[in-house]
Design a protein around this nucleic acid. Structure first.
Length: 149
DNA sequence: GCCAACGTTGGC
DNA sequence: GCCAACGTTGGC
């Protein structure tokens, strides 16, 4: 899951403990949250729009998808008039802070490894919620635990 | 701040 | 249902 740290960083998540991942207004990202994300699933937390951007830590799904109430709140930035409590269009999950990496694994570093060449992050980078394979996940967690040469 | 990629909207 | 216009994202 990606977030601009100025908007909501992993430190914000650490402070809050859990948060609901509201404001996603992309169908592919919504479908992933609604159909794929289960309680206990691990989440790589990615800070976008930094120089450089990168994976900064881990979170975990603690509540499966339910309607994103900000979508029918006219005062919200995420208001969508086509979404109603009766027929919600947008969904969110709740995630909990797991840990922050000792160091950020930058996108440049991810690009160095053929094991990660097929990552959605490196190919369809604009999706704000993306699938990660177990192999990619383990690889990145291992990277974070040793210094980058 | 620029701009390429890409998703969405809406006129026809 | 096509596609041009427009808006957003996000690396750089």
């Amino acid at each position: 899951m990606k977030s601009e740290p100025e908007a909501y960083s992993i430190d914000d998540l650490a402070g809050d403990g859990t948060t609901h991942w509201d404001g996603v207004r992309n169908y592919q990202a919504r479908n992933l949250m609604r159909d794929e994300m289960k309680v206990g699933d691990k989440v790589l937390y990615y800070h976008s729009r930094l120089r450089p951007p990168g994976v900064v830590g881990l979170a975990e799904v603690v509540e499966e998808a339910y309607p994103d109430h900000t979508s029918w709140d006219p005062d919200s930035n995420y208001f969508d008039p086509k979404s109603t409590p009766e027929e919600p269009r947008w969904f969110m999950v709740d995630i909990a802070f797991v840990r922050k990496f000792d160091r950020m694994v930058s996108i440049d570093e991810l690009k160095e490894y053929p094991e990660l060449a097929d990552m959605v992050l490196l190919n369809r980078s604009r999706l704000s919620v993306q699938p990660v394979t177990p192999e990619e996940y383990e690889f990145i967690v291992a990277l974070a635990e040793r210094p980058h040469e």
